[in-house]
Amino acid sequence: MSFVEYSDFIQDGDVAIIYLGHDSMMPVKVQQGAQTQTRYGVIRHSTDLIGQRYGSKVTCSKGGWVHVLHPTPELWTVCLPHRTQILYTTDIATITMMLELKPGSIVCESGTGSGSLSHGILRTIAPTGHLHTVEFHQQRAEKVAEEFKEHRVGHLVTVRNQDVCKDGFGVTGVADAVFLDIPSPWEAVGHAKAALKTQGGRLCSFSPCIEQVQRTCEVLTDHGFEEISTMEVLLRVHDVRTVPLPLPDFGPDPSAQTQPETGEEPHPMCSPNPPSITMKTTTPPREMPGHTGYLTFATKPRT
């Protein structure tokens, strides 16, 4: 198991994702002899997990069952331990394409936060790319570095514990892309420009507030960035439902006299079980995230 390479069977030391039900998952560090408590009962790692195929059904002690899944950045995003606000898959997907990430890309990121985006970046730039990620909070930087190692992507990433606005990314002229998710991105634009290759590259800044976007765009223009473009992407989920639709009864229609008399008298009153049809359709969830942040993209021209 690695976050950048699939394996077929669960091994000691892997991180596996226990799928409990829709939108309910938990990550598990697989360890010989260890146990994990779920709402369907206990999972014994030695017998229930190790040696089993990823994707198999595991019966828990209370008789309920769960599926054990191979980790992916997307599964990790929905079950990682939050130490900060995180970026979700919809924004991550957009960022990945608009930053033109691919195997071999050199990327700078700040802040690292809980590492949700970092895992997505690492998956895309492996096996030959590198991520330089900067986090000013010491414990967070240490914790995320530990997770990268556990997820076997440590060789693809350098975590730096410093303030990107003051000290930059710790590299110059190497990056194909820079990502900023910090409170005052305009203060880091100069460092971002320095980190990018002289041949140019792409930049993205994620900000929840439009005032931040405003200031960032001004500074990007001042620094000679081109193709500045701000957008917002939201995920709309469609829940599939079978819905019954009762049909109305307008009573017998005297104008429809051409119909031949049938033996049975039509019921004079409304039938006790009004006819209805059922159909498959989708409904939107009652509430949905209506705002995550504005994504501002720009191109650094060759300097």
């Binding site: 976007v213 405003q214 473009s229 701000t230 917002e232 992407v233 995920l235 709309r236 469609h238 599939v240």
Partner: peptide
């Protein structure tokens, strides 16, 4: 498992001083 039917909503912005 984990079946999901979705679409995305995308909006672009004009960002200019006092005209965003």
């Amino acid at each position: 498992v984990s079946l999901r039917l979705t679409d995305t909503w995308l909006r672009h912005y004009q960002v200019l001083p006092n005209r965003t």
